[in-house]
Computed example of a mutant assay.
Amino acid sequence: MPADLAVVAAAGPLAARLARPPAAGIALHWLGQAGFVLRSARRTVVIDPYLSDSLAEKYRGSARPHIRMMPPPVDIAGLGAVDLVLSTHQHTDHMDPGTLRPLAARHPDLRFVVPRAARAEAMTRTGTLEDRLVLLDAGETAEPVAGVRITAARAAHEALERDADGCHRFLGYLIEMEGVRVFHSGDTVPFEGQAEEVRALAPDIALLPVNGRSAGLLAAGVPGNLTLAESVALGAAAGVPAVVAHHYGLFDFNTADPADIDALAATAGPLRLLRARTDRDLVLTARP
């Protein structure tokens, strides 16, 4: 049975909201791009946080300088206690050394769930040893901390790619906490069998990118994602009750129009489409 979903207007800055754990279920907060915080009364899980200007520093003076369209909604200290960080792949807006290294230093017991194919890069970007990494490949499940179960799924950031050992370079994750099941697809385009795989995970909600893709961006080394229409179609085909549209509003050369998301949300049919926003939170509670 799907979890109950409530949309809650933001009461104060994100740091203040993170200091108030939900009484039941989990609260879902957007960090911008593909980043989210999942928080229960017992655990805080962070997915793909990009809270620095690493990419602006890397691409300063280039044709695409990666200047932020929105500031980070919270800083490292404002995240509070963090139990687990998930990175879906090693692109910097998903595995950011400017965010992960300070988090690792601030929380000595913090563990990082990463694709097995990104093991070496994850150690470099977190500044930690392998014993703090939880290495997963598609189809594998782990419970890195009590009360949080993670299942990895395939993702295709333009294509399904494997490393020399056959491990998938791009992953999505199903996160199970407090009886609620949240699916984060990672960066992905449609691929054969995708809807069936997501349906088998039976998520209560899916966090899906909507910035799309183009031949021009791919030629410039910028791989793409699902379009808004494709994200809605995937959610519907997989039988997901609600989809949160994200991966927009950070870089002006690779975004989606919020007005388009809101317009489609008004006509999405039985699927509930929500636009990720920093001025509101989602609260999901398992039904008895």
Results as ranks from 00 to 15, higher is better:
V134S: 03
R20L: 00
F191W: 15
A19Q: 09
L55R: 00
P108E: 05
A77M: 00
D53M: 09
T267N: 11
A202K: 13
G172L: 01
A6M: 07
D4I: 04
F191M: 05
A266C: 03
I47S: 07
T255R: 02
V232S: 04
A206Q: 09
V85Q: 07
K58E: 14
M95N: 08
R287S: 12
D279E: 13
I205M: 13
A63N: 05
M1V: 07
F170Y: 15
A56V: 02
G127K: 11
M177N: 01
I26M: 09
H89P: 08
H107Q: 11
L226V: 10
F253V: 07
A120M: 01
E130A: 15
S54T: 15
A263L: 12
E130V: 13
V114Y: 00
A24W: 12
D53G: 13
A117E: 05
R42W: 03
V148W: 01
A242M: 03
M95L: 14
F170N: 15
V37R: 05
E57G: 15
A104T: 06
P108Q: 04
A138V: 05
V189F: 01
T285V: 15
V244F: 00
E230W: 12
H157Y: 15
R101M: 10
D279V: 05
R149G: 10
L18R: 02
G224S: 12
R132H: 12
I67P: 00
E140G: 06
H157R: 14
G235P: 13
A155T: 10
L208G: 09
G166S: 11
R60F: 09
G127N: 04
F251G: 03
F36T: 08
P115Y: 07
I205A: 07
F36E: 04
A276P: 05
L110S: 07
Y173H: 12
R39N: 01
R162I: 14
P270R: 12
P203A: 06
D4A: 13
V182C: 11
E197H: 06
P258I: 00
V7F: 03
A263K: 05
L129G: 15
T285R: 15
A27R: 14
P102S: 02
V198K: 02
R119A: 10
T88V: 09
D93C: 13
A219S: 14
A268N: 05
D4P: 00
A122Q: 04
E197R: 13
D281C: 07
A16N: 04
Q194K: 08
I261Y: 00
D137Q: 09
R68F: 05
A19I: 02
V113Y: 09
P203V: 08
V82S: 11
L110V: 03
A19M: 06
A23I: 04
V148A: 07
F191L: 10
L86C: 13
E161G: 03
L160C: 12
M69K: 07
R169T: 12
M123D: 01
L160V: 15
D187H: 14
D163W: 10
Y50R: 06
P71V: 02
T141V: 13
G221C: 05
G139V: 10
V222E: 15
T92S: 12
G80P: 05
L271K: 07
A23G: 13
R169P: 03
R277E: 14
H157M: 11
F112L: 06
V232W: 06
D83H: 03
E158K: 08
E196R: 14
I76H: 07
D165S: 11
D262P: 01
H94P: 01
G12R: 02
G12V: 02
L273A: 10
P49L: 00
L234K: 09
A122H: 02
A259C: 06
